[in-house]
Design a protein around this nucleic acid. Structure first.
Lengths: 198, 198
DNA sequence: ATCGATAAATGGATTGCGTCTAAGAATACT
DNA sequence: AGTATTCTTAGACGCAATCCATTTATCGAT
């Protein structure tokens, strides 16, 4: 809590230094063509240090969202049951509130230039799944049958990631991720392709 | 088309030989503790040959579904537009029709024994995302706004994978994947947690 | 039978991610 | 000074996946 950390060697390189170096290289050479060694070399630190700051190469882009998903997952796990979905909406709204992912937005808008199209799609799928798993658990706790819980959970998790995607692709300037998520929630209410429309 | 392949050295080891060896080892030691070299050693072929049959280690479990998803993706791409979702339901029904994934079902039912819980969740997410991408494209072609298209697509893709999961976890004996998918489609019509329920 | 053409199997090298460990370096507290 | 704490770093490791050159097996045609 105090400004000076109590003891120990101070950090020589910040997360942001590494993230900047990584994004530069992703733009220059593309994601696949950039190795972790390249990133640390440009940042002026050893390769080992990279994994003190990020758990993987893709984590450079996703750590911001990952943290928020982690707290959301924890919050969802703490809810005993949620019959009408009120808790879910609140927790997911908190997830996206004031969310402005620097590196991720850059990557999403320049995905084709970075050769990231596939990579981003897959990484997003993993985050979506992690969130969906927590949502499905809560749904089952709330009495929803397993099959239905999986589907409803996937829908809400997709709303979160679609909101981030839409926000990034619309220049990341207009509106917030939260606004996009509100749109997404409204969209769920009137989903097309519903079998009930037959 | 003819029974005898025209020329060239005949295949010495079948896909199934490798798949069986892999599943055995997954059950014995777990997924992570089983290397590709272990699999090929038990199957009696060289490590290089493994990648002539499977594109990755996890592909051993998922190749069956992957093939079906590939054709579904192609079919979806060939549809110019689908305003009421009729085509979507047909293509997805075809995807799951008479689907009985041997290795995958075994892995899903024994996921905890194989130390596969995380692995399967992630692999499933990737398949779900691939299908969802094709569905979202079609939705956009059909005039659905991008944000909504992503969400609706995720819902349907989730229905497919949830059906497979539900089928595998119910002993893989009772009913078919197709039956489960029909259930899933009915579930979509009356999704809980809908904001319209406010 | 012999000879190519084709297709598969193989050995081996390579790259890169992610993990781990032991050693070293910088700081604060006493 | 000494000590505990915290970070950095070098280096090695295992493994997945790719790549290439070589070998082996079968075909069809001469």
């Amino acid at each position: 809590m105090s400004s000076t950390s109590r003891a120990g060697r101070p950090k020589a390189s910040s997360r942001e230094t590494l993230a900047e170096a990584a994004c530069e290289l992703f733009l220059e050479r593309g994601y696949d063509a950039t190795s972790v060694a390249d990133i640390t070399q440009r940042a002026g630190v050893s390769r080992s240090s990279f994994f003190n700051y990020f758990s993987s190469k893709s984590d450079v882009l996703w750590s911001g969202l990952d943290e928020r998903i982690t707290t959301a997952v924890d919050d969802l796990a703490a809810v005993p049951h949620d019959r009408d979905g009120t808790e879910v909406r609140h927790i997911l709204s908190a997830l996206v509130a004031d969310f402005a992912p620097d590196s991720l937005a850059l990557a999403m808008t320049n995905s084709s230039a970075m050769g990231l199209d596939d990579e981003l799609e897959q990484d997003a799928a993993l985050r979506q799944a992690r969130l969906a798993a927590a949502l499905a658990d809560l749904a089952r706790r709330s009495g929803v049958v397993s099959l239905t819980a999986d589907i409803a959970a996937a829908t809400w998790a997709a709303a979160v990631l679609a909101a981030v995607r839409a926000w990034a692709e619309s220049g990341a300037g207009r509106g917030s991720v939260g606004d996009r998520f509100a749109e997404a929630v409204r969209a769920i209410a009137r989903l097309p392709w519903s079998p009930s429309a037959i």
